[in-house]
């Protein structure tokens, strides 16, 4: 642990600070406790219906496709329609998320639903988002026993279901709700904030959609979720 003392010691000396300085400790403690929000752009501060519309618009701007359905029960049909429209095999990979599990997948007779972490062969992954962020068209997903992270990255097509009521104007609202779920100072192993399908501009600054992550991001917004 010599590296630790060395670095902390050098930092303190450079700052002219003493270990155990009560005023500095209090300043840090209070800052962490208060977690002030700073500047929140006006863009997302709208009535909820408009936030949902802004979310859809911003997501489309970053090359995601967006579909709105009336209730959770309509999601399997929407997924099957997406697969047909894209000429994809009738199979999806998903975690065992309660909200997804409650949907009537069995009514889609020919649709194969595989649960668990993704395999390299999976072409389509389906996830349920914790929330949407209207300001940037971002979806927030987190990992857990029922929500594998590989589903978000390995398949070529990523379908994300988001409840309209979970769409917020800004990222801070989503962070606050995470804190409520997990407790102050605690986080899930992985929080993914996803804004559009993967892309690269590393060759001559030419923007290409579809890099190492999914080539397509399809969002299904459930209005009566």
């Amino acid at each position: 642990m010599s590296g630790r003392e060395g670095i902390i010691g050098k930092v303190r000396t450079a700052l002219g600070a003493k270990a155990g300085d009560a005023a500095r400790t209090r300043a840090v403690h209070e800052r962490l406790l208060a977690a002030p929000q700073g500047v929140i752009p006006a863009r997302g501060q709208l009535p909820h219906a408009k936030q949902v519309r802004l979310f859809c618009m911003m997501a489309e701007k970053v090359s995601a496709s967006v579909q709105r359905v009336k209730k959770p029960d309509s999601v399997p049909r929407a997924v099957a329609a997406y697969l047909r429209a894209k000429n994809l095999p009738s199979a999806v990979r998903m975690g065992s998320d309660e909200r997804l599990a409650a949907m009537p997948w069995h009514t889609m007779k020919s649709l194969e639903v595989k649960t668990g972490a993704a395999d390299p062969e999976d072409e389509v992954g389906v996830s349920h988002a914790l929330a949407g962020i209207a300001e940037t068209g971002t979806v927030a997903l987190y990992s857990g026993p029922r929500n594998p992270t590989t589903v978000n990255f390995l398949p070529e097509h990523h379908i994300v279901v988001v409840d309209a009521k979970d769409i917020a104007g800004d990222m801070e609202t989503v962070l606050a709700s995470l804190r409520q779920t997990f407790g102050k100072g605690k986080m899930p192993r992985t929080l993914n904030l996803i804004t559009g399908p993967s892309r690269s501009a590393d060759i001559e600054q030419t923007l290409l959609v579809g890099a190492h992550g999914p080539r397509a991001l399809h969002l299904i917004v459930v209005d009566g979720g």
Partner: peptide, 30 residues
């Protein structure tokens, strides 16, 4: 809010990933 706009002119980069510790008990991956 400043980073991607200043770098590539995006509002947000595609993936912002917050990682905390190793995989949790019962996590299927990570």
């Amino acid at each position: 809010r400043l980073l991607a706009r200043s770098a590539t002119g995006q509002d947000m980069s595609v993936y912002t990933t917050v990682s905390t510790g190793p995989r949790r008990p019962d996590d299927p991956d990570g």
